[in-house]
Nucleic acid binder design. Structure first.
Lengths: 340, 340
DNA sequence: CTGAAAGCGCTTACAG
DNA sequence: CTGAAAGCGCTTACAG
């Protein structure tokens, strides 16, 4: 077991400085003479020193640890989140602690509390739907643990990186209207998640702006899973006056809608146009490929981390621009309304 | 900032015992009188004590930290891995440190080295394709860091939880043969990954056992991505004497093959049968739903963690049964060969 | 700009 | 079965 664990003490000894001075250059603190800094840096390379994350975390006010919890039915979302957060967290000199949790778990608050305490987290990033859980937010407030959410606000106090979900959903709906569709249905996302409400609002706004009437039988429940999309699609296509276009508020549900259509021997997009949201890998793994809205999850994750870090540094919430760009991606699952 | 961080010292004080005794019951060590144990446990609840992960990790021989690195194009695989590892790791009293890495990164060995040193890992679990990288394995051996892989062995010395990939691939091929197919093509996985070779072997074995000839133009390259499956499908369907069934060695590639078929206006499974491997969410998000082999990733991940933990405890590699069950899942993408 | 000392929350020998 | 002491690798006041 040759664990060539070089310690800060070794670095200090090799550089011929005190522990504290070595610590200063490792932590990139000011007040070190340029020549001293260079000597220490050289020593660090010499013994290939890496500051251990555990000792830093066990002492002092800051642990340099940021937590990422997630509970999302869409695994590509989780992986994008993870990659973005890992990258930015490393760039900022922090370490990431991840924890999958279940929103429907009654112990969710206890679990987050345990995570924050046990790991001594400096802050935590909360993707949807966790950032929409008031219980979680208030326990973090009580602890004084800084956090930043991801996705549209339903609470003015918290600023989060997000696309404008409402505008994006309106843009997709407008696109379907431009194709000549007037009977456009909408599949809602998971209840009590802020994206769900925003996307529905965008759909309704676009309808209203074009003078189309909102039919309540055209708005059906879903929970962002494929299965819920399948059920929603079956329900919509069973209608006496069925829609000619269905906008599902994420790609997995859109895939479900497409399956429902195909089960009825309907051809997408000739008989029915289908649109999704997210541009997840699923969007291009189904046939025909899905018209959708691209959302840069990894970028949002990076921004969330850097917002959190600057909040940690400045001890106050930065009010910075947090809207990121969405993009309408037109593929083959939508087409002009055929004259009948 | 009311961080009600209760320390071991507080527990000891409340219980009226020494620090060491309190430590003993927290760590579930022997040699504590039953009554003392109870008193300490009561005190732990009283002050809702949680041992901090950082201090444990910064001192002593063991850090109680297990690493999970991954680099997989398939995000559902990653998430299953993560869930399984998180669960088992917690059950064993360990904490999980995760790190996404890139196999094609030239710095991969350096990154793993850094991870092991910085986080002071007790051990690490290596899913494919990382467990098939000799460089990584040898640096870990040099460090004396225990590891356990996942997936089929290509190295007798390492035992890993896995299904029998060869047998599973043979079973799928046999199934296609039973449906009457004789012209069965195979799409290979990523190069230098052990599953790739095993699954190919299974396909070839089944062919051989049924007296069918192995056509080299029916075996095409892939890398476990949708895109590579699409290309492979196009290549196979362009053949003068095209196959009547295509077995892609994972679901994403099978989805690509199906898209290639649909682009040529072929009907699956009437014109061409398509089978996959993994039973990932993709398998049921495409239409027709995919015939595939189910592999319990989360269970394999759990087993990997518990193997690692017992290896840590006993200081020797446990030789235990590590094969887990696979399951042939017949859905709608395969059918009997039509007489022509 | 630099350092000697005390401290973080836990663990490891060791002694009784 | 129990505990007093030293130690882990780092950081935080504080002094010069």
């Amino acid at each position: 077991m040759i664990r060539n664990k070089s310690t800060l003490a070794l670095v200090a000894e090799v550089a011929g400085v005190s522990l504290k001075t070595a610590s200063r250059v490792v932590r990139k603190e000011p007040n070190v003479r340029e020549e001293t800094r260079r000597r220490v840096e050289h020593a660090m390379n010499e013994v290939s020193y890496r500051p251990g994350v555990a000792p830093r975390a066990s002492v002092g006010a800051r642990s340099f640890l940021i937590g990422l919890v997630f509970d999302n039915p869409n695994s590509s979302y989780v992986v994008d989140l993870l990659r973005g957060a890992t990258e930015q967290t490393r760039a900022e000199g922090y370490n990431l602690v991840v924890e999958p949790i279940r929103t429907d778990d009654v112990n969710i608050v206890v679990n987050i509390k345990r995570l924050v305490i046990q790991s001594n987290l400096d802050g935590i990033v909360l993707p949807p739907p966790i950032c929409d859980l008031d219980d979680v937010l208030s326990i973090l407030d009580e602890f004084g643990t800084p956090y930043v959410g991801i996705g549209p606000n339903n609470n003015v106090l918290v600023n989060r990186p997000s696309i404008d979900d409402e505008a994006a959903a309106a843009a997709m709906t407008d696109y379907l209207i431009q194709l000549g569709h007037t009977d456009i249905a909408f599949v809602k996302g998971r209840a009590r998640t802020s994206t769900t409400g925003q996307r529905l609002k965008g759909y309704e706004r676009a309808l209203r702006n074009s003078g189309l009437c909102r039919r309540s039988d055209f708005i059906v429940d879903g929970d962002y899973t494929f299965k819920s999309g399948l059920h929603a699609g079956e329900q919509l296509l069973r209608l006496n006056s069925a829609p000619t276009a269905i906008f599902a508020s994420n790609d997995e549900m859109a895939a479900g809608v497409m399956t429902a259509a195909m089960k009825r021997n309907l051809i997408v997009p000739d008989d029915i146009s289908v649109a999704g949201f997210d541009d997840s890998p699923t969007a291009t793994m189904i046939w025909p490929q899905l018209t959708t809205v691209r959302q840069p999850i990894d970028e949002m994750s990076k921004i969330a981390v850097s917002m959190l870090v600057s909040q940690l540094r400045d001890r106050e919430v930065a009010s910075r621009e947090t809207k990121v760009e969405y993009q309408l991606i037109v593929r083959d699952s939508t087409s002009s309304l055929k004259q009948s």
